[in-house]
Design a protein around this nucleic acid. Sequence first.
RNA 1: GGCCCCAUGGUCAAGUGGUCUAAGACACCGCCCUUUCACGGCGGUAACGCGGGUUCGAAUCCCGCUGGGGUCACCA
Length: 485
Amino acid sequence: MSGVRVRFAPSPTGPLHIGGARSALFNWLFARQKGGTFIVRIEDTDLERSSRESEQNILEALRWLGLDWDEGVEVGGPCGPYRQTERLSIYQQYARQLLESGWAYPCYCTEEELAAEREALLARGEMPRYSGRCRHLTEQDRRRLEEMGRRPVLRFAVPAGENITVHDLVRGEVTFDTAGIGDFIIVKSDGIPTYNFAVVVDDHHMGITHVIRAEEHLSNTPRQILLYRAFGWPEPQFAHISLILGQDRSKMSKRHGATSIEQYREMGYLPEALVNFLALLGWSPGGEEEIFTLEELVQQFSLERVAKNPAIFDLDKLNWLNGHYIRQSSLDRLTELAIPFLQKAGYISGGVTPEQYRWLKQLVATVRDYLTSLSEITRHVDIFFAPEVEPEDEEARAVLAGEEVPRVLSALAEKVRTVSELDEDTARGILKKLPKELGLGARKVYLPIRVALTGRTHGPELYQVISLLGREKVLSRLGRVAGAC
RNA sequence: GGCCCCAUGGUCAAGUGGUCUAAGACACCGCCCUUUCACGGCGGUAACGCGGGUUCGAAUCCCGCUGGGGUCACCA
């Protein structure tokens, strides 16, 4: 057990995002590799947008991905509570400390005043930043403002003319001038701390040694460092990983399509595919291997091999990985996963009997090679559920118009009628002998059968199709086409 | 706009001054396997943004430019 302590600290304002999941994964991998502690803390200080529902969604997504946590919400731990709204008294205590030491001061400006100030600054072509005018209010001023009913926020007094250097594990040294940082709010007028303040207090109290998070937080880091210094606390190590971008190279958002883990789960992606994919987005192993289990990732992961440049979310690669894991999975698991999709499509209803399950398993076995995600299964199995079959296009119709077709189909029907059970081996046996018996080429025999049975010119192995369809359906479909001829 | 980050094929990326006439993967194309499609196997097309330096030598170091991104909230 090393001293490494890392955390994933989502704000529960929506489902777990792809980017958030990757941050969680990197933190988790780092902790597991170092024998450290992985903590999940909920940053719900945005009362307006936070919800327990989102929190649950996020936690469930983490569990689904296989990322378990040692301390945090729901599991507890020595540094709790792990929900920021339950730590309010802790923040109050430290806010007071900052106020007393002169690092913080109350600001009575209204949002309107601030907006006007911002506009004026902008109009003059200057940076929109808080002027710090409440910094030098006298006691009387404050009393007067309070009597007017104004509820102050607490601002941090940013020292002028200092350079703050972030020692970042992936980016190296990044320096910021405090001249570019306005006095930022640490406690809102309703007494709730802001992000920058709460993270510092919590990370310190939870003994966080490494802060691994997305690059969008890099420019917040100097503010946080200022806070660490004001308190006289040691800084953790920082590691800012680059963003995941959409196809248009801007930060992934809703308009880029599915962005939450939940959505991918619902589309039939496997957690191991997502984990593998996310790990490869921004991190790369030395070698040429691309397929990794969670355990292998724990072995090989390292912050040194995390790339600095942003990565574009490549659905094609996710699909390839998912297809790979689908082909790798056990048939039982795939069948279980496929059932909801088949139910939603109306192919099966109610419970599944053991007999049905055996058939479904066979169905999954015959179409799994086509799948890139489980949701696609419906596209490939419709032919087995349709009451009747129509040639899907001109090509298919042309196949059935062939001269020898009636002969081929009735020969097959004849054979099928003679067997009692139509398992795959039986079907294969019948099929195999057919061309020779009819004196025709394989294509001349199999293609018409395929079209008669499925309406399509492409599809799974014929013997599998026949076995899955069963005697009755095979005979009726064959008969229907023969009758039409 | 200020500040900050980034820059190798369409995409993910290896590469840390010479072994780079630049790896691997996805996608794409071709061939093979095969009754079809898919799977699988084999092969191919395709990249160091631009301009200056430094150096005997630069994808690798420095500067500038360009391009992209992030951030400047009583959101996190």
